[in-house]
Amino acid sequence: MSTARRLMEFGQWEHSAVCVYAELHSVAEVRRVAKELPEGWFRGREEYGEFDGVPLEDQPALVVGVKGPGVPVDPAACNGRLPVECELDDLPIGSIEDAFTAAIGPNRGWINWEMLRWPDAPEVGFYGESKHAEVTLLFNTPTRELDEPADDHTVLVHVRSVCVDGREMREPYAHWLAEQVGLTVIGPGQRW
């Protein structure tokens, strides 16, 4: 968390925000996280076309999506709905990060600080970044797709991707950003 926060604070400005997301793969985890994050929005999986023609009010709560207190008590409500997603979007920085970190447990998920503003670095040929300026802290996975479990966490610093002749031209900017807060990029770039 401290590594991610150092990067985020370097690019934070008045319009910056934070979002969190987790995939919950068991009924016990859905219930636990719903209690710990009552403002979270919980939504389960549905099969394509499963509720075509069914009025919204007649669809299961986990298909429509509910806040933590609305998560059904009956474990059968999760049948066919796992993994259940939990998310909170567009929150002020500092409002959810610690509670989410405490709640994530063994589940895969992320904290994403967005709408950051990376500064100009004309001495190395970079002229700021705001459109793609983000920091993501991945929990229990090394990828934004959350498709690979891991026993550790990964911090991603986001910059605009520019490839010329198969060579990534903006990756050095990510290295420069990390250096500004006393860090080093240790892994390969990822495309999102």
Rank of each mutant, 00 (worst) to 15 (best):
E87R: 10
A76P: 01
D74P: 12
V71Q: 05
C78F: 04
E87S: 10
G53Q: 09
V54K: 05
Y48H: 09
E57C: 03
Y48R: 09
C78K: 03
V33M: 06
G40H: 04
V66Y: 01
P60I: 01
P72Q: 06
Q59R: 15
E39F: 08
G68Q: 00
V84T: 01
V64Q: 15
V30M: 15
E57A: 08
E57I: 03
G53S: 07
N79A: 14
G44D: 05
L56G: 08
V66A: 03
V63E: 00
V27D: 12
L56N: 11
G68F: 00
I96T: 08
R81Y: 01
C86F: 04
G80V: 11
E36S: 13
S95E: 09
G40W: 01
E57G: 02
V33I: 12
D58Y: 09
L82Y: 13
Q59G: 05
L88T: 11
A34H: 09
Q59N: 06
E50M: 05
G68E: 00
L56F: 12
L62N: 14
R43M: 08
G53N: 06
L91S: 07
C86S: 04
P83K: 07
P60E: 03
L82S: 07
Y48A: 12
P83Y: 07
P72I: 01
R45W: 10
V27S: 12
G53D: 09
V33G: 03
F51G: 03
C78W: 05
E87Y: 09
I96P: 08
P92T: 13
A76V: 15
G40D: 01
V84A: 13
D89I: 01
P75G: 06
G65K: 01
V63F: 00
G40V: 11
V73R: 12
I93N: 14
A34F: 04
V71T: 05
D58C: 10
A28F: 02
G94C: 05
V63H: 00
G94L: 08
A61N: 04
V33Y: 01
A61F: 02
G70D: 02
V73H: 13
L37K: 07
G40Q: 02
E47R: 04
E47A: 03
S95M: 09
P92K: 12
D98M: 07
A61E: 08
P92D: 15
E46V: 13
P72R: 09
D52I: 05
G65L: 05
E97A: 04
G44R: 05
D74E: 12
N79V: 13
R45V: 11
R31P: 05
G80C: 06
C78T: 14
P75E: 10
P83Q: 05
P92R: 14
R45K: 11
N79M: 07
Y48K: 14
E85T: 10
K35D: 13
